[in-house]
Each structure stands twice: as C-alpha cells, then as structure tokens.
Design a protein around this nucleic acid. Structure first.
Lengths: 336, 336
DNA sequence: ATGAAAGCGCTAACAC
DNA sequence: GTGTTAGCGCTTTCAT
C-alpha cells in the first residue's frame, strides 16, 4: 500500500527527469531549453524521461533565476463584461500573443482602492508591463514601478500624479460633432444625459457639447442636464421626466452607449420623435427601430495603439512619454 | 555622475530592505507577511525602509519557496470579444476575487494546437486551476496535470480523453423547445441554420431540433439545413437563398445568437413574416423590429456554477468528477 | 522575539 | 559536449 488513494504526488522537477535519464540536471535544462551542442542520444533520453514523468518546466522558477521577462502583462479595466472593455481585452491579448505573452485581466469596478490593490498584485507577479484604464484616483503609487522600468500605458483616461504614455479619444471633438448634428437638424432645446462629471471622459464630452451650443449661439441650460445616469434604466427614467416637463427638450444627447440604449428604449416606447444622438457606437445600432446618430470610432485601433505602445516600451523604447488622441466620426442611422 | 540617465536600477529585495533598516532578512519577511511576535519598533523601521526603497514583494519567489498556491487561475475560452465569453470571464474573475485570486485569460480562437499551447503555458505558470471551454480536440495531454492535483473544470462542452468536472447547457432540450414553439405556431417547413456539426453544442442542438420535428410527425428535410453559417452575414445569405427557393421554408431556427441576428436582419430587410427562433438570448433582443423567440438561460449562473466548482476543487474537494446540466427556457418577444 | 542557514526549481558562470 | 557550483528572492527550519 505505498500509494494509497489521495496521495498527492510531488510535481516532477528537472532533477527527477535527470535521475531517470541518467544525466545531469544541467543537461536536462539544455534539452528543455533547446540549447545547441547536446548529443541526440541524450536529447532523446531526456525527452523520454520528461514525457514519462509528465514534467512541465516551472516558468516562475525559470524567470526568477534568469531575470528574463515573465512573458505576462497586466490589463486593468473597469469590468470585462462591458463590450467596450472586452474588445480592449481581445485586442490586448491579440497583440500580446504576437509577443508570446499571456494576459492577466483584472477589473477595478471603478473602485480606486480595488484598482490600487490589483495593480500591486500585478506588480508582485512581476508582469512585464501594465495596460490601464484608470479610475479617477491618484496613481503616484505606481511611480517606483515606473522608475524601476515597468512600462505603464494608460488608455481612455489620463493618469493623475504620474507621467506615462496615454492613449485617448477626441472626446471633446466627438461630442461637439454630435451636438452640432442635432443643432443642424433644427433642435434648440437639447438635453444632455451623463454618468458622472468625475469621470474624465464624461467631463470632456460635456465641454464639447457646451462648445457646440455656444458656437450655435445657444445657451447652456442646466435644467436640461441629467447627471448620475448610470445604466439604461436610469436613462429611460431621465428621458421620461424630461419629456413630461411643461417645456420638454426636442432632442437628447447621451454621453455613452448604455445611456443611448436606455434613452432610445423610452423614446421608442412613447413613439416620440425627439432627436437622439449618443457617444459610442454599439452592436445592432443600425437595427434600432427609430433614427439615431452615434459618435463612432475604431475601438480596436484605439486599443491596438495602446497595446503596441506598451510592447514598444517593453521592447526597449525609452523615449519620452507620448499622448495619442484618436479621432471620432459621426454616423447617422436612419429608421430601418 | 553615479546615476547617468538610462540606468536601470535593480529592484529592491528583502535583503536591501533589511540592510537599510538594520535588521535581518528574516525580520523583513516577518513584517511583510504580518506574522506576529515582532517588536513594533522593528515593524516601523522595516515598513519605512520598504516604502523608501519602493519594495514590492516578489510573489513568484514567495510561492516558489513556500509551495503555496499561486493565487492565479487560468481561463481558456474561444474569444474574449464575444459577449458569451466575456460574461464568463467576468463571472470567473468575480468568483476568483472572492478567493483573492487573479485570472489569466487566454483565447484559443477555436484552434486545438493553440489551445494546447496555451494550456501548457498556463500550467508552466503553475496556476491553481483551469476553467476551460474546450475545442473539439483531445485533452489527454492534460492528464499528468490532473493527476498531479491541478483541478480542471470544463464549461459548455465536454472534454474528450479526460475525466473531469463538466458544466453544460441542456442544449437538446432547449432546441427541442425552440422548434416545438415554431411547430405550435403552425410552421411545417422549418429551416435550421448552424455553424458546424463538429462543435458539440451545435450537434446537440440539431438532435433536439430533430426530436421536436419527429414528435410532431414531421420529416427531417436535409435541404432545409444550412451548415457553415459562421457569422451574421453568412446567416443573412443563407436566409436569402432559402427564401428564394421555389418551396421556401416558413420559419427558421438559428442555432446560436450570431446566426439569429443575421437571419433577423435579412428577414426584416425583406419584411418577411417567416417565423424565427434562435438559441441564446442577446442584448436588445426585446427591441428587435419583428417578432422573435429565443432559447434563453442564465449565463452568469452557468459560469458561476463552473467557477465555484473549480474553487471547490482548489479548496480540497476530491470527490468524484461531476457533470452539471443547466436548464434553458423559451422567451417570446413580440414586435416592439 | 530574532537570526543563520538551507533550499524551492531553475539557469548563469565556470569548470572539465 | 557535459557537469559542478552558486544563486535568483523568498520562506522554512531550527537555533538562540
């Protein structure tokens, strides 16, 4: 009864493989790492032994000793279930794969404390670089890592308290175009629905909307602005409230696609012919049962820019930090 | 000129922290790991030193020596940009977080060779467990890992060549219900659109559709079955071809939501009143411009079942492998 | 309560 | 070509 049920066998190491093959540890290392100048005879014996024992090289031990990159990068986003972020993750994984690198994906859920903890956890695992969609919090705690040579690229929002590569959208220009489109369609009372001004992108988009109104000689009416619209249901409620006023708006500008979808649902439910434009395109937007204008952009190119910037840094590019701004374009969807 | 520009400083280690604090390496280890019985005085000195140097404990070295779990699991899916998989990733990360574990997400792109490589890479990083949506290929190569105690849970499709926990949908029952619904609505010529029979879920769903037709006394007409419908555009073309026949079908059953969306677009474009039912719900399905029936299920609960099964195993549950089948339900969406 | 020494699995540096 | 030794950064074991 030497191997009772439940025995947890120790994982075979290079020493085990070497003993079984009758060679030295170093020869096993050479074979496993495909280094040249090893006799074919020994190669065969080592590979046979490794296969028989089910040997798998311990990548963590390997990088610990060699000091080579861990071939792992960290991606910090808000929540992976959101198509915006899952597309970013997809592109990041795709670029990472071209560099034979795996991706640890972590979601901050918009919580700065959680974000900081996750970034520390990623650094503790000695990732080769970080791709971060930051919360609004301070990122100065990352400075030691950056100074020690861990590249960090920020995407979609700038970092605070840290100078690093940043890839952003033309939020202001896109919002300006969206509102200008509504104005061109004859609207004078345009409601604006947003999540929170404390989110960088929202703040920029509000500025763009204000610019467009000002350019048209229209006043910014705070009573037509609804904040804290955090999901489609809230957007629907906001639209309902605004339309039920004595002086309702004739058009709505939604500052992200979740708000757009919720607003659209409520407008359609009422068969309202109010104008609607929204920031971000979304799947099936061209199938919506009523006209809709969206501020669109190439999300995959956006994410690819950031990921390739990161691998450029990992590859040794030590030039000054860059900020890249991606353009947007207005897409009009008529009724289907 | 001791620190010329471009100097890559060595990362501080516990030894560096110890020297600066005037204590031993072991004391630093105790403080960093919050072990008891250390004088407050020394704790303060160590923490000050660690902060000043920007020390970050090397998690890889730590788990190497201690043999403790790496607090990292691997998720292998097909492609993270697909909402089905990104929802799974979200739930997996959520469950992992409750176990203070990070998630490495890798996409096989439905390529068995790539899947095998990725699973090996994950094992090389000594993940504590694997959550796998397998391709059709053989998974016997994972046997050494499983025997060495690395838990593996398969989701959505069973593994071949390996006995392990598996979480599946009631694909057959769901497809049966979907087709039965079309039959109940009076349809006798029902086209079936699918990706590939080599995918487990597709195969099961075809069997369910056949069962429903047989139960209604209807023959299975191979000329109404379209395979290799891999994306919405292909689905649209398949629908167009079938409708342009001399004896067109009066209804369509789409075996996944991408096919459903493509079929719906083409039906709507033609203002066809053909029946449409599809496997999988999708976002905004209730906003589509024409009636639609979907075979729905609780995707988050599905993924949670698998993730919790995995952490049960990681936590020491060595009972016999289980197979769990999640039910589906039929949801009818009238015109909006 | 603190520290010295050994060693996790692997690779670098140097023999032979 | 192959083996021996030391050591990556950390934790364990065992002194004191």
């Amino acid at each position: 009864m030497t191997h009772a049920h439940g025995d947890r066998l120790r994982r075979p190491t290079m020493v085990d493989v070497a003993q079984r093959a009758g060679v030295s540890l170093k020869t096993v290392s050479r074979v496993i790492n495909k280094s040249p100048h090893v006799q074919q005879d020994l190669i065969d014996r080592v590979l046979e032994s490794a296969a028989a024992l089910g040997f798998r090289r311990n990548h963590n031990a390997s990088t610990l000793r060699s000091g080579l990159p861990t071939a792992t990068i960290g991606l910090l986003i808000e929540e992976i279930a959101n198509p915006f972020y899952s597309t970013i993750a997809d592109v990041a994984a795709e670029v990472a794969r071209h560099h034979e690198t795996l991706l640890i994906t972590a979601s901050s859920e918009e919580d700065p404390a959680r974000e900081q903890q996750l970034l520390r956890d990623l650094c503790a695992r000695r990732v080769d670089g970080l791709l971060v969609v930051p919360t609004g919090a301070d990122h100065a705690f990352l400075r030691p890592e950056v100074e020690l040579g861990v590249p960090v690229v920020f995407l979609d929002r700038p970092a605070t308290g840290l100078l690093a590569d940043t890839v952003l959208l033309d939020n202001r220009g896109g919002a300006r175009d969206g509102v200008a489109g509504l104005v061109a369609a004859g609207h004078r009372r345009i409601a604006v629905l947003l999540d929170s001004l404390s989110v960088y992108t929202m703040h920029e988009r509000v500025l763009g909307a204000q610019e467009a109104l000002a350019a048209a000689g229209l006043a910014w009416d705070p009573s037509l602005v609804r904040q804290d619209v955090r999901d489609p249901a809230a957007a629907g409620r906001a639209v309902a409230e605004l339309l039920d006023r004595a002086d309702p708006p004739t058009a709505f500008f939604a500052l992200n696609n979740r708000i757009t979808v919720g607003a659209l649902q409520e407008l359609w439910r009422r068969r309202s012919d109010a104008g609607l434009a929204g920031f971000d395109d979304f799947e099936l937007s061209h199938l919506m049962p009523r006209p809709l204008t969206v501020v669109a952009y190439d999300l995959r190119a956006y994410a690819r820019t950031a990921a390739e910037l990161l691998f450029g840094r990992i590859g040794g590019d030590h030039s000054a930090p860059r900020t890249v701004i991606l353009p947007t374009r207005l897409v009009q969807h008529p009724s289907p």
